[in-house]
Computed example of a mutant assay.
Amino acid sequence: MGFSFVSESFQNALDRLFETAQKNLNSKDDETKNWANKVRSLKEFFTNRTLEYLDINLHETKKWNLFDVSQLADSIIANDLLHLKYGALSFYVYLKEWEFRRGIKENEQHNPIVRSFYDFIYTEKNQRYLEFKTHYDFVDELPFVICGEIYSDSKLSEIRNFLEEKDFSDFNSFVETNTTTFEMIKKWEESFDEKKQAVLDLEKRLEESKQTYDFVLLNKGFKELYEQKKAELKERRNGYSSFGATLAITPLLLIIFSFIGFWLKGEETLKYLLYVMFPVSTFMLIILYFVRVSLQHVRSVQSQMMQLELRMTLCQFIHNYAEDSEKLHKKNAAGFEKFENIIFSPLVSSDDKIPTTFDGMEQLAKLVSEFRK
């Protein structure tokens, strides 16, 4: 006929059983005390949700009224020790079919309370097997009963007959083909990963080459500008030398011609010298002015060449500017700011200090006006 785990009578019987266990937790009789503690430890297990699951899935246990705690005899209930023993052995049957149905192996049971309960029941089984032989034998035969239930299912028989009637040679061939295909795909994936890594390595090398090349181009630009300034310095020095030579030769020639004139003409030569002195003096002042301008140009070009040499030296010192600029800024912001100011600032020249030709002519004009006065 069977029983139900969700019936009111079963719930009331559970409550009476747990009350008996609670009452004997500190019993003077050690045996009663031990059984009371084991039964009381499973109280949290029997929730409404668990009872519903047991009622749906424990088909074999429900067939036997022997395991229904609500149908225990009054003589058993009146004896606290027997009441606890029958209740605990019924729990043992419930838990075992529950585990078999869910596929939980005994060595995989992680609930310490359940494991402790099993250990206690196994000890009692070894010592007093005959007292609850029916319960123990039922649990031992339960796996075979459940397996027989599964294999005798009509749906399983239909599936088995269907598999026996069908020819699965094509399916086996398909599986073998798929296995070969999967192996090829796996090899392709491994080859793809290798090629992907090779491409990433090439990308990294190209990026490094690009950064190096960019810095080389910057250095090359500085070198080309340096060569231009070098040629310009040579031209400026030649101009400076020409003006300097003219400034030195002019008075010397004047002195030589004066001696020759004095030797040939005597004192009359002095009269001509007075007429020649003013234009020669003006000419020498003009040449002196251009000597000064040429000297300033030479110094300016030399200063720019020194700045270019400094930039080329810094380019050789820092190669990964595009990649390392952020790191360098964080480590030494002030120092790297000075580096950028040097590299990317315009060349400093002395153009503001070089007098223009027009300014020089104004100065000569003022000098001539002073002589007239």
Rank of each mutant, 00 (worst) to 15 (best):
S4D: 13
F5D: 02
A21D: 04
L25P: 04
N34K: 06
A36G: 01
R40Y: 11
Y53T: 06
N57T: 11
L58P: 00
H59A: 12
W64I: 09
N65D: 15
D68E: 03
H83G: 09
L84D: 05
K85L: 10
K96N: 08
F100P: 05
V114C: 05
F120K: 08
L130I: 03
D140G: 03
I159D: 04
N161T: 01
D170T: 05
S173L: 03
F174K: 06
E176C: 01
T180S: 02
F182L: 09
E183D: 01
E183V: 00
K186C: 01
D193V: 07
A198D: 15
V199Q: 00
L200T: 04
D201H: 01
E203C: 03
E207Y: 10
S209V: 06
K210R: 08
K220W: 03
A231I: 10
A231C: 04
A231R: 13
E235N: 04
E235D: 07
R236K: 15
R236C: 11
N238F: 12
G244H: 05
L252R: 07
I256C: 13
L264H: 10
F283Q: 12
M284R: 04
R299W: 11
S300A: 10
M306Q: 07
Q307A: 12
L308P: 12
E309W: 00
E309Y: 04
R311E: 08
M312E: 15
F317M: 12
Y321M: 10
E323C: 05
K327W: 01
L328S: 00
L328E: 07
K330Q: 15
K331T: 03
K331P: 02
A334S: 13
G335E: 11
F336I: 14
F339E: 06
N341V: 02
V348S: 02
V348C: 03
K353D: 14
